[in-house]
Every structure is written in C-alpha cells, then in structure tokens.
Design a protein around this nucleic acid. Sequence first.
DNA 1: TATTGTTATACTCTATAACTATA
DNA 2: TATAGTTATAGAGTATAACAATA
Lengths: 149, 149
Amino acid sequence: MSASPAFRRTDRSLPIALLRARETVMAPLREMLSQSGISEQKWRVLRVLDEGGPLDQKAIARQACLLLPSLTRMLQAMEAEGLVARATDADDRRRTVVTITEPGRAMIASHASQSDAILNRLEQRLGPERLALLLDLLDELQRSEPGAE
Amino acid sequence: MSASPAFRRTDRSLPIALLRARETVMAPLREMLSQSGISEQKWRVLRVLDEGGPLDQKAIARQACLLLPSLTRMLQAMEAEGLVARATDADDRRRTVVTITEPGRAMIASHASQSDAILNRLEQRLGPERLALLLDLLDELQRSEPGAE
DNA sequence: TATTGTTATACTCTATAACTATA
DNA sequence: TATAGTTATAGAGTATAACAATA
C-alpha cells in the first residue's frame, strides 16, 4: 500500500517541484496580466523581444518555450494588436525578423512596477543570496541539456 | 532601443527561468509518457495518489497544480481506464475520496526505471549536493506563499 | 451560508503532419 | 536536400461561472 519505492517523494521530484514553484510565482503575475487581457505566453514573447532585440521566430520559440505553430498564430494576433512588427530578413528570406513596437514596450512598461513589486517581495522572503543561488542552479540545469539555449 | 531597465534579464527572471528549467527536465520525461498514451497531468495525479494515499479531489488539485474542473474530467477518464477508484467519503458526503488502483500503480512502476535513469542523469550533471540544494530552494519558495501546500 | 464537486462554455495552447518558400 | 515558417486539424487543459448536494 506504500508508494513505489523507486520514485522520489513528489516534493523531492524535480519536475513537480519546478511546477509548484512556478505556480507559486506565477499566481500573482497571472492576476496582473489578466487585467491587460494578455496571455502568459504573449507576455513571455514580449519580454524576450524587449530584451533580446529583433529575433527570428525560431529563436523566440526557443527562448519563450513555445512551439513554432503556436508562435505563428500568437504573432499574427500580436501584430494585429500593434505590439510587434514582422519583416522578412533581407539576407535569408526564409526568416522573419520580429521586433517589439513602442506600444509593445509600453505594455511591458505599464506592468514594470507591479511586476517588480511581486518579485521583490519574493526576493525578500527567500533572501537575495538564496534567490541568486536559485537562479544560478536553474540556469545550470537548463544549460546542462542539449537543445536548450 | 534597449530593454526596459526595470526588468531583470529573462535568464534572471524567476518565472522564465523556472519554465525553461522545467522544459529541460520534462523533455525526456514527456517522450517517455507519450509512449504510454498518458498525459503529463494524469501522470502527476497518479504520482500524487501513489505517494499521498487516498485523497479528496481538492487535495489532488492543489498538489498536482490542476483546477478542480480539469481534474473532474481527468478523473472520470482515469476511472474508466481503471487507473483510479472513487468513493464518497462516509464522514463528509460532499467529498470524493480517490484511490490509485493496482493497474494505476503498475502504470507508474512500468516507468520507474526509465524515469529514474533520466533524473539520475540530471543529478550527475548538476551534482547531488546542488540538486538537493535546488530542491530545498524550490520547496522554500513554494512554502513562502499563502495558498501553497 | 460556506464548501465540495460537477457541468457548461469559450478560449487558448499543444502537438503532429503536411505544405510553401527559400536556401 | 534541409531549413524557416505557415496552415490544418485534433485534442487537451485553462479559466470562469453557474449549479447541485452536503455541511
């Protein structure tokens, strides 16, 4: 009647622990985003573009953890909303280069202070050193696998 | 043209770092699960039940990070597949107590060695101490918020 | 009156394959 | 022949509200 001994306890299972931690962090952020009518996924796209400058879609998909078909539809909607602009790459015309627009940056900026407050609160609870350590470990984990960026 | 200064770099952004790390960990596990025709979500339900013994649906939803309406439909399917059994709680007849069945445990057991191999490989890359530290930090993060279990 | 779980509904994302065009 | 992106399609999960049964 006991749990299968080959498995770690779910709170010591990395996939579940990552999910629970993410849900904890995202809960207040989701509430914030719902007020703008923007999805979590579109928010990630904006964040990646805001930071990484113009990117082709494959790079966006990889960095924002999205599939290319999902991204295609999202970008079409976001272009219609004026949040991003797309242009064919002159050097390689298979590529589409996506740029965040000023309204896109404004959308991000409008949430900056609120988002910062949420994450600062977490930082205070965990402690700045331990948060930095957590980010290091997550980064290390992600880099340890092939295919990750 | 630079990124909004109020935001952390996305690789130092906790929500995105958690997502990327999770995708890294889940990629090989998803491949494993797809061979059984079981979804990631149903797998979480089985894992939680296998570990936590009979649970009511609200507890399952919280521990597996699912909404109650999603869980209701999933459990109906899983009951039809014989993976779980449901019964009304005698003491509080609003509650439904869900139990994993032997076929459910067998489903889990059939993936134990493969799942273990995947996670052991990650543990070797990161180092056992750093993995333990990561799990500690994730747990701490999750516990720091109200509403988390 | 609050809580557990269900149903209904609309929406979004996931996932795969097939397709276009460029290289 | 391979790659970037699109389209098509099926399916599943998300999210909200409204509801039933029970406490």
